[in-house]
Amino acid sequence: MAKFDLQETPRLGGYTKEFGDSGMVLREITELVLTSLAMPMGGKTKLTAAVKDTFGLTLPTALKSKLSTDGQTRLVQTQPDQYFCLTSKPVPSAMASVAYVTDQTHGWVGLDISGPNVREALERICPVDLDPSAFPVHAAARTTMEHLGVLIIRVSKDQFCLLSASSSAESFLHAVELSIKNVI
């Protein structure tokens, strides 16, 4: 039956680049599964319990993501009643009984940017204050960069995860690449 096999192609073809000897590295995050969990009205208790059971996490609040102890699951509040679940494999289907689940994996492109100049590069496009005092590790925010909506998460001191719409992935990559080139 499967005469026509479909291949999955990362939006940016698995882009990865080291910028000379600057230590700056930009990489497409290809292994990411992204799931939106919308909290049913009046369903906070159930969702909280399920998230605890499934991921060992409490529900995140605005601006601060939660990372599971095994490092495999990150939860981010994206709207007052909506969470993004960043995992390496699909979330258990049982989540559908406590949340409205929408697979977002293919709707986004993820870029991992890291290196000593990461703040300088991002301050060319990111209006959010990324000072560690205001945006510590695990902080998360949705904002706009070069007209594109972006979810930015601080992974470590000099490393950020940037998620933006997959259809404009090339433009987004160009914006981030240019920002790095402009500061190194």
């Binding site: 605005a62 509040q77 994206t78 709207q79 007052p80 925010a141 949705r142 904002t143 706009t144 909506g149």
Partner: peptide, 14 residues
């Protein structure tokens, strides 16, 4: 003073 509606389109959509 004026009460007006703003939409956080590039944010939490509130």
């Amino acid at each position: 003073d004026y009460r007006e509606l703003w939409y956080h389109e590039q944010g939490d959509r509130s």
